[in-house]
Design a protein around this nucleic acid. Sequence first.
DNA 1: AGCACGCCGACT
DNA 2: GTCGGCGTGCTC
Length: 831
Amino acid sequence: MNQLDFQEEVTQFADVILPIPVPRLFTYRVPREFAGQIQIGARVIVQFGKTKIVTALVARVHTQPPKQYQAKYILEVLDETPLVTRWQLELFSWISEYYMCHIGEVMNVALPSGLKISSQSKVQYNPDFEHPDLLTAREKEIVEEIKAKQSLTYDELARFADVKNVYHLIKSLIGKRAIIVFEEVREKYSPKVVRKIRLTSFYADPENLKALIGQLEKSPKQLDILLEYLRYVPALRDPEKNTEGTPKSTFSRNDELSDSSLETLLKKGIFESFDVVVSRFAEDTGTIATMPTLSEPQQRAVQEVTQAFQEKDTVLLHGVTGAGKTEVYIHLIEQALESGSQVLYLLPEIALTTQIVIRLKKIFGERVGIYHSKFSDNERVEVWKGVLSGRFQFVIGVRSAIFLPFDSLGLIIVDEEHEASYKQYDPAPRYHARDSALVIARMQGAKVLLGSATPSIESFYHAQQGRYGLVQLKERFGNAALPAIELIDIRQARKNREMKGDFSGELLRQLEQNLEKKEQTILFQNRRGYSPYLTCDDCSWISKCDNCDVSLTYHQRDGELRCHYCGHKEHLPRTCPACGSTKIRTQGFGTEKLEEDLQLHFPAARIQRMDLDTTRSKTAFQQMITDFEQGETDMLVGTQMVSKGLDFDKVSLVAIFDADRMINFPDFRSTERSFQLLTQVSGRAGRRKERAGRVLIQTNNTQHPILAKIIHNDYEGFYAEEIEERQAYGYPPFTRIIRLTTRHLEQQTAQAAAQKLATLLLQKVGTDRVKGPESPLVERIRNQFLFDVLLKFERNLNLKAIKEFVKETIEEVVTTKEFKGISIVIDVDPV
DNA sequence: AGCACGCCGACT
DNA sequence: GTCGGCGTGCTC
């Protein structure tokens, strides 16, 4: 039996991933015409349920007909060749198993929405419509419109009929058999097209062209256009060039040339127009930079990393702030690309908008694809396709770039690997990009380089254990000194009456000096808004959110109180809502107040604030950076945004406010986070040898041990202490945590369900491994009460069976009648 | 996730 | 008596 016979006789079936939270794959029948051609990793369109039409992904092709049910047909095959590689499918299932979510949810974050099909419900006239007399006058009008336009979307129909709820109308018309509804499927991605102009083949011939020029003597406007064309496309000298033509816009740019003459030439058959698909990443052929020269320590680091990769698949590069890790990366990237493999360079969201990308782009040119969440969907699809086609061998991207269709990765760099933003929280999958990168690397035989000035405890632990290689860069690039960090005791300052608002006298003096020296300052306060809450002097009322258990932050610019959890906004009350008193005061301070106070102290200073509120627009962030870089700004006030990978030459002073709040945050990671954040912010100062940097930290508790570690840049000391704590209390990296959060409108129900969950689980896995239920720090968000149950398992335990049991238990609790309306969030390895 | 089928209250 | 509430279960 040859291949063809086989295909003709046996029906194929495809198990597909649906973009819907269902726990397994679904089997569809492959239509005859696609038999033998359907590829694993191709997208297909299928009907799911009675009405839904969705894009699904082929995960398996086989010939076993399902016994329990009749499989539906695949409606359409969207890709002839796989859009998703085998590795990716493997990654999808790993993520869905490890992070305990549905595989469809993984597919949903993985594919840019431009690769998903949108199905839109539309209505059309029923050709078999028999009883027009049943329609009201208004309905007749509407049906006529539908008939005239062939089809209308629900929205269009609603607009035409001018009704808010269109469903009643549709239902009525369907009942009278006047219309039918259908689903229209369309591909969202549209390639960017440029309309071009060229000579028709007859006139592309030099002889004919010469003759034409003669003929056009009497139509000067048309001749102008032809001559303009020949300036761009020398068709006389080189007829071959004509094929490529020139964009139509070439002519419209020039006011001297008339559009209508061009149209005439087109009509006469002298020119023809045609469309070409072009890249959205049209190369701004900017200056191509050469490979940077490495300092001696950097060279050594490259060697050490390369050497470590001989034995280990993962290497941690621990380099102090300003050590010049980027240059080390560049050389390793170049090496990997040289050897013909792909490279992925992951960066946290914020850092991606900065200088690094521009730099890498200049060095690696057209081989680089950039994958960023601020990009449009079409752009993301282009990067995806570029990786598939081999156009992009190197991708710089954020968290979700781990889902791109690589097939021969040689190196993955996870820069700032300690960053918590690598972990996605909402929606599921709650995956960690760094940890997933390690899995991808193992699949494809790639190496992973984790880089940070302040490695996560987990990563450093693995390095200490010998699981990862460890390479250190202990000096700053170009012999620049690490900044001198000083503490300012604000408790003492307050006693001595040296505080002016939130500024100590010492800080004000230093700020002033820096301003006089024309050097730049960064002020860090990890809290946006004007003040975190309002309070009434007479009755101790505090501004609180109606839906969440948090205070409302006052935003002065908009005169609003805002909830940072649910986005709720209200106007600033004039009098106390509780007692009517007018003595309402702001309490505490955020970046907005800091900026205002700073301006009062230094009226002449040019101050810029950088936080979520001021960087909403796509370009605002870049603009602020450019201004600061060019010395247009003296002082930059900001939240943790100012701590991420910014590299400015002229910053000599960094001021840190409210370090205490961070340090005293009740969470097992608060010490780690404080060390990382404060070290990173401090690291913005004195990055060039010529300008020593100073850091001032205002604190109530100068004796706190973590501050001493930060001052002395003592990562190892911090690590030694922290790892001991983690071991003593059984926290990661010694355990793995799964956090279950119940959510319900009723506090009682949320708590009872969490209790039930805990009880059931501890019976199975033992009391030691179950903690809670307990209220999280914020007990209520968006009107839902939350309760946490923490599961802690020893690292060496295989969690597969346990996770299965956890899922069953959750299922049991969710379906319990008395817990109706409960939802349970699973977070594996929460950060 | 959506959407159907299915069993109990306020309306012509 | 009916319209409609949303409560449970299925979707290849």
